[in-house]
């Protein structure tokens, strides 16, 4: 009963009557949770994506058969729509959050320095919005080039994505754009992976010792693997 009185008093203070607990879903903490969940889902997708792409080293037969198996799956449209939704939630909620956060400090410091250890602040962590917006632009170019790229038929069925990839990366400009974008994605994940888990509420001393270095290793591994693939495709295509 006291809790009831307590909540009534609080809703009177704020001039609302809706359930404070349900309204929590719109709070700064829930926003953080949502950005964390969607971010980690995208990391999971990226890991699947990079492992799939590494199959290109096994030759056109294997790579195109893998792509055909994926494209032939009836669940693909559902997965694609789901992925698009996850992207949209992550991007839109982050932009809204960024704007609100900027408003929280209207007058900026004349001089501001990093506080040092144990702070995790780094160049990547302070430029998440920039790296994120770069990745949105990259995604548009990337999806246009491959998902909606040239449809070379492959005799055994499906598209000849092996050929498309080698042709796309023939231009050194494309390779450079991809390499820079992969450095940007590495930077985004450098802070993003550990931060995502922190946003989910996972933080014990043992977990912290594991996730901080592990997140950075996964970030470098994903970015590095994509860069190697792009350079390899360029060299193959040029040969």
């Amino acid at each position: 009963m006291l809790t009831c009185a307590f909540e009534r008093r609080n809703s009177k203070l704020r001039g609302t009557v809706s359930s404070p607990r349900l309204r929590l879903l719109g709070s700064s903490v829930a926003t953080k949770l949502l950005i964390g969940i969607t971010g980690l889902a995208l990391v999971l997708y990226l890991i699947v994506h990079v492992v799939g792409n590494l199959l290109i080293f096994l030759g056109p037969d294997f790579f195109n058969r893998y792509a055909y198996t994926l494209e032939g799956n009836p669940l693909l449209p559902i997965v694609e729509i789901g992925l698009l939704l996850v992207f949209l939630i992550h991007i839109l909620r982050t932009i809204r959050n960024f704007v609100l956060n900027q408003r929280a400090r209207p007058v900026r410091y004349v001089e501001k320095r990093r506080a040092g250890w144990p702070s995790r602040k780094s160049f990547p962590s302070s430029t998440m919005i920039v790296s994120g917006l770069w990745l949105v632009a990259f995604l548009l170019v990337h999806v246009k080039a491959f998902r909606y790229g040239a449809e070379y038929p492959w005799p055994a069925g499906g598209r000849d994505l092996y050929r498309l990839e080698l042709e796309t990366f023939r231009s050194p400009l494309v390779v450079a754009f991809y390499a820079i974008s992969m450095v940007v994605i590495g930077a985004h994940l450098w802070h993003g992976i550990a931060s995502g888990f922190q946003s989910l509420g996972a933080d014990t001393p043992a977990w912290r010792r594991f996730i901080l270095p592990a997140g950075k290793i996964v970030a470098v591994a994903i970015a590095g693997a994509f860069i190697v693939i792009a350079i390899w495709a360029h060299l193959q295509g040029a040969a």
Binding site: L24, S27, V29, T31, K32, N97, A104, P118, R120, S126
Partner: peptide
């Protein structure tokens, strides 16, 4: 949480 948001504090970016 509601009160902190209403006061105009920002969210957390896990920088520490």
């Amino acid at each position: 949480v509601h009160q902190a948001d209403a006061e105009g504090f920002g969210s957390c970016s896990n920088e520490g």
